[in-house]
């Protein structure tokens, strides 16, 4: 029995290996993971907003296309999407980002995120009271103006907590970019840990990566939860309609 524990300790918790890989994880992996997450999130938000507008459009074909986009990207395993886009686009001659694997990685994660964020935005916008839009329209504002001046600013408040929650998922999601084969300096937390674990024939570097991911995601999760609770209390103190 002690033999087993010892082996587990050696395989996953070798302090020397953890200490050895940590500096590289923090100085190279962490910035890359965060940068990938931020770029993917920006792509996801920008595209997600457009798709959300489409999901709420009055024209059926537009709704249909956007719904298909969301269903497709949410329905496929992320690993498959990253492969198809990150390796597929250059293979198909659509080298929009040249030879930059990093850009394909960020783009493919961004696309996946846009589908999830579109749903978050759609829910947020639909939560805006219908009367707000009617008020804008009766003042002569176009659908688009009502969207931009009323729904968007009110919806954004509602979606900030779920969007931040989604950002946490993106941080974890960026681990998939190892599939695309990054150069040494471009590697994210997981890629570095994986390379290291193969070289050492020991999984302790993955444990180190896990610790780093947890250090990022757990505090953020609690912060988002606290934020969401505060927002909810705030909205309860909001405008009251006396019936």
């Amino acid at each position: 029995m002690f033999e087993g524990l010892r082996r587990i300790g050696e395989t996953f918790f070798d302090p020397q290996i953890i200490a050895g890989v940590m500096p590289q994880l923090i100085t190279v992996g962490l910035p890359n993971t965060l940068l990938l997450s931020v770029i993917a999130t920006i792509i996801g938000i920008a595209l997600g907003l457009v798709i959300a507008t489409g999901l709420l459009a009055s024209q059926r074909p537009v709704r249909f296309v956007c719904r298909g986009y969301v269903d497709l990207l949410r329905g496929l395993p992320h690993i498959l999407t990253v492969y198809l886009i990150g390796q597929g686009l250059p293979l198909a001659g659509l080298s929009i980002f040249g030879k930059s694997t990093y850009a394909y990685a960020a783009f493919s994660i961004g696309l996946i995120e846009s589908a999830y964020m579109a749903e978050i935005f759609r829910a947020g916008f639909q939560g805006v009271e219908r009367g707000q839009v009617e008020a804008a329209r009766t003042l002569g504002m176009t659908r688009w103006q009502a969207m931009l001046c009323v729904i968007l600013p009110q919806g954004i408040r509602r979606v900030l907590p779920p969007l931040t929650g989604q950002f946490i998922l993106v941080i974890k999601g960026t681990a998939l970019v190892f599939l695309l084969g990054l150069t040494a300096a471009q590697r994210d937390i997981f890629s570095i840990a994986q390379d290291n674990s193969i070289n050492n024939a020991n999984l302790s570097s993955l444990t180190a990566a896990g610790l780093l991911y947890l250090a990022l995601t757990v505090p953020m999760t609690y912060a988002v939860a606290a934020w969401g609770r505060r927002m909810q209390r705030g909205s309860q103190r909001g405008p009251k309609v006396v019936a």
């Binding site: 009271e129 009367g131 707000q132 009617e134 008020a135 804008a136 329209r137 009766t138 003042l139 002569g140 009323v150 009110q154 909001g238 405008p239 309609v241």
Partner: peptide, 15 residues
């Protein structure tokens, strides 16, 4: 609609 003003039961001020 610019020529027709409307006031709603529940006000609908932009919150």
């Amino acid at each position: 609609r610019v020529r027709v003003g409307m006031v709603f039961q529940h006000f609908h001020l932009f919150s």
